[in-house]
Design a protein around this nucleic acid. Structure first.
Length: 351
DNA sequence: TCTGGGGTCCTAGGACCC
DNA sequence: TCTGGGGTCCTAGGACCC
């Protein structure tokens, strides 16, 4: 199968509609205002050369690249560009497409020459959308996904059982898809630093540290194993949420209540569009200094905004009243239809 | 006046029930 | 003055991904 990943997607879409930005350090994030609390969504390769990356506070990014062109996030534009790309992928001969996000998808296909197929796909995407992509080829989803990183930018790379350990073996476990900094550290305490060491680990030995599901999962990640079928079942959201970082910290009770009402109204817009009820609410509170707490409750199934608002306000009443609030988030969970289940890898992410 | 916003899944402990 | 065993639900927290 193939894993297709658009190169610097968000920045590339911006350059497409403003060609004069080509070759310049473009940084997209927040409202494009470096004096606000916001972070970088995507930086062009030219900006990355200055050490700017996604997730970095916009203020710091602007300081690192004085000549940067700062642009606001334009979700609608990226949605449209993404839909176009996915359409091209689905039109490729024999392709089964599993969308992972705005700028990523797995493509399942049977072909004797995957490299040629990948090059054809890259060309088709470029011709139709003006966007460049990198493609990983693999015999499992994990290997294809990891392979893409070696193909960037605009390249193709293949990872299979054959060369997995040769290519990945000496790399840190952090390079694996699904291992972040916390898990990498915990693995180190077990004497596991590299992918080869993780691959050699007995899954049972990881159970005490990571639990019955995740322990064996990490062991198989080390070997690059896991699901090998691309699943194009339409994605069904489990929930919807809204989150706001306030430009000024909230202290007053009335400010907090107004903010919660705003979050409810945003979340309920999505819920109503979905046509499924809310069965659980989670309120996230980020205090100053930086600590985050969540409060959740299951509620009787409802689509009534007023009822949801009541529950949300009462969750908010559980916060520490004397502390200033930097961020509030509200998540509404919906019941899942039985046929929407998709049992494959426990890797988290929008699919 | 560092630290977005939208998602998913796993784990663990207590409550509660039989 | 002893305290099983299994199951589900609820809540909180943690981790990861794009």
């Amino acid at each position: 199968m193939l894993h297709v990943d658009l190169d610097q997607f968000v920045a590339a879409v911006e350059v497409l509609r403003r060609p004069e930005l080509a070759g310049k350090p473009v940084i997209v994030g927040g409202r494009g205002d470096p004096t606000e609390r916001a972070v970088v969504s995507t930086a062009s390769y030219e900006a990355r050369a200055f050490g700017v990356g996604s997730g970095m506070p916009l203020r710091i990014a602007a300081r690192k690249v004085p000549d940067a062109i700062l642009l606001p996030v334009d979700r609608d534009a990226y949605d449209a560009a993404s839909a176009e790309v996915m359409e091209v992928l689905r039109e490729q001969p024999g392709a089964v497409v599993q969308v992972l996000g705005w700028d990523e998808a797995f493509v399942g296909v049977r072909t004797g020459d995957p490299e040629a197929y990948a090059r054809d796909t890259q060309r088709a995407v470029l011709d139709r959308t003006g966007l460049h992509c990198s493609i990983g080829i693999g015999d499992t989803l994990v290997r294809a996904k990891v392979a893409t990183g070696f193909g960037k930018p605009r390249g193709v790379f293949r990872l299979t059982a054959e060369n997995w350990l040769e290519v990945m073996g000496e790399r840190p476990t952090l390079d694996l898809w699904g291992v972040g900094s916390k898990i990498a550290k915990r693995l180190q305490t077990l004497g596991i630093d590299t992918v080869a060491q993780l691959a050699a680990a007995d899954p049972a030995d990881l159970v005490p540290e990571f639990g019955p599901k995740m322990g064996p999962w990490y062991a198989s990640l080390g070997r690059g194993e896991g699901a090998s079928e691309v699943d194009d079942t339409p994605w069904v959201a489990r929930g919807h949420s809204r989150e706001t970082t306030y430009q000024r910290d909230l202290l007053e009770q009335t400010e907090v209540e107004d903010a919660v009402r705003d979050l409810v109204s945003g979340v309920m817009d999505d819920i109503e569009a979905e046509g499924r009820p809310v069965i659980e609410l989670t309120l996230k509170v980020r205090y100053v200094p930086f600590t985050t707490k969540t409060f959740s409750r299951t509620i009787p199934s409802t689509v009534d905004r007023a009822v949801v608002q009541q529950h949300a306000l009462s969750l908010a009443a559980k916060r520490e009243m004397e502390r200033a609030i930097r961020l509030l988030g509200l998540r509404a969970t919906m019941p899942m239809p039985d046929d929407a289940r998709r049992g494959h890898t426990p890797t988290r992410g929008g699919w």
